[in-house]
Design a protein around this nucleic acid. Structure first.
Length: 432
RNA sequence: GGAGGCGUCGCCUAGUCCGGUCUAUGGCGCCCGCCUGCUAAGCGGGUUUGGGGUUUAGAGCCCCAUCGAGGGUUCAAAUCCCUCCGCCUCCGCCA
């Protein structure tokens, strides 16, 4: 949620940001008017309450008839206090409800518009020319089946559509990718973390995942818990309601966890293979820093993501995501998209968001301010690596005519030094 | 799953039975000052968090809320009642 003080001081900035997102700038005025009402009601309540407290002291001192007289006097004051409290309460609720619907104020320079209005910042590497090489590339599912690495049929049998098994080289690839991601993030000074993947509603809401995309999230009704779609949720919750010490620099964490997504509303999209699935593994980076350091930390996260993709020797591009496609908490987002040969286009592999103080404010994560008091910190997140999409990109980009797949050098130490994955026979027949 | 105990402003702690000068006690730690060759000790003061008002702004001052969280009872709640959360102990069950 954005800062009510900043909104009061400069409502136009929030209106402009809303406009760039293609969202309602009128919400700003809904907030401001509820805020006015809240403050007026609060002043009245506080005054009445002070009176009531003063009365309370006289009552305590008085005896006998005098006491009875005072009690009679103060009785309707108590009623008024209650009513004024309720008025102030409903106004502040109204204010915050509207405030929560306002997206983060975008960083200067974010492209205006929706999904297709991104700006390409850079293209790195050159997609292979399979025509020149004299063969048609196989897609990731075909390669995965040849290698005995991916089984979507049995995934569907056991769990339904968009579930899969990774076997043999597939399973080894996932583990190697996560190991590489952990190695690089640890080199970069991130503290490795194992996180809970079931969280309470407050944590889910605090991280900002119950607003626009509530139907993307799995909920366990019986226990009132949510399965997280990214370890960002648990990492954001880690320091909820805490005053953190950033004197020694930002807090940087990297967690590898299973991620669960309902993929509601994506029926028919990316149905082949393991591009869009309900469950995958991800190593996520998360940073707590001072607001003035957030843009530099964002640049750092992007640099690390690029380092990872370069280690995988994938051709990719970086885009500056447009305002309308940011989601509520992000003030700016960069996506790294790898080239997928059989789709003939770049697809998102990793992504990094600068949430400035938006997420931390709702979670109550603050630091000591210089002149005394506290102030809200900034949070940022970024994907180091996921399992499924990088596997797709690796298989397709590094495939050879015979169906074997060359492994990038950086991954080999995590695969027993092997440099090529070779096709195997069909997966063993099921035995009863 | 069953039974019981506990949760106080960084840490420890008084207060809760029996509601009212609780404006939450004391100690430790920390901060500022005094004293002092230096340090320590000693002395004095300060030290939860959020919000509102006053102010050009800040400082300061005034007020409200905050005793795990949320409701309730009452003129009045740290204190009584209910729900939830967390921690601990015992029993059962499973590793």
């Amino acid at each position: 949620m954005i800062d009510i003080r900043e909104l009061r001081a400069d409502p136009d900035r929030a209106r402009t940001s809303q406009q760039a997102r293609g969202e309602d700038p009128g919400l700003v005025d809904v907030v401001l008017s509820a805020d006015e009402r809240h403050r007026a009601a609060l002043a009245q309540f506080e005054q009445a309450r002070a009176e009531q407290k003063a009365f309370g002291k006289s009552v305590a001192r008085a005896q006998g008839e005098e006491k009875q007289a005072l009690l009679a006097q103060v009785k309707d004051l108590a009623g008024r206090v209650k009513q004024l409290d309720a008025e102030a309460g409903s106004a502040v609720e109204e204010r915050d409800a509207a405030l929560r619907r306002i997206g983060n104020v975008i960083v200067d320079g974010v492209p205006v518009g929706g999904e297709d209005d991104y700006v390409v910042l850079e293209e790195v590497g050159v997609p292979r020319d399979f025509e020149a090489e004299g063969f048609a590339p196989r897609d990731h599912l075909e390669l995965g089946e040849l290698l005995g690495a991916i089984d979507t049929v049995r995934g569907a049998k056991v769990s339904g559509a968009r579930f899969y098994y990774l076997l043999g080289a597939g399973a080894r690839l996932e583990l190697a990718l996560m190991a590489l991601a952990q190695q690089i993030t640890q080199e970069e000074g991130f503290v490795p973390v194992v996180v809970p993947t079931l969280v309470r509603p407050e944590t889910m809401a605090g991280a900002g995942f119950l607003d626009a995309h509530a139907d993307e999230v799995y909920r366990l009704e019986a226990d009132d818990l949510y399965l997280t779609g990214t370890s960002e949720v648990a990492l954001a919750g880690l320091h909820a309601d805490e005053i953190v010490d950033l004197a020694a620099g930002p807090l940087r964490y990297a967690a590898t966890s299973t991620c669960y997504r309902r993929e509601a509303g994506s029926y028919g999209k990316d149905t082949r293979g393991i591009f869009r699935v309900h469950q995958f593994t991800k190593t996520e980076m998360f940073v707590y820093c001072r607001p003035e350091d957030a843009q530099a930390e964002h640049a750092n996260l992007l640099r690390i993501e690029r380092r990872v993709l370069e280690a995988l020797e994938l051709p990719y591009r970086v885009i500056d995501v447009a305002a309308g496609d940011l989601g509520g908490p992000a003030a700016r987002k960069f996506d790294c998209e790898a080239w997928i040969p059989t789709q003939g286009r770049y697809r998102e592999l990793t992504s990094t968001s600068n949430c400035t103080t938006y997420q931390a404010r709702r979670l109550g994560t603050r630091e000591r301010a210089e002149g005394g008091g506290t102030r809200t910190v900034a949070t940022l997140n970024g994907t180091a690596l996921t399992s499924t999409r990088p596997i797709i990109a690796l298989l397709e980009n590094h495939q050879q005519e015979d169906g074997s797949v060359r492994l990038p050098e950086a991954l080999r130490p995590f695969l027993g030094g092997e440099d090529v994955l070779f096709p195997v026979g069909p997966p063993p027949a099921r035995t009863v």
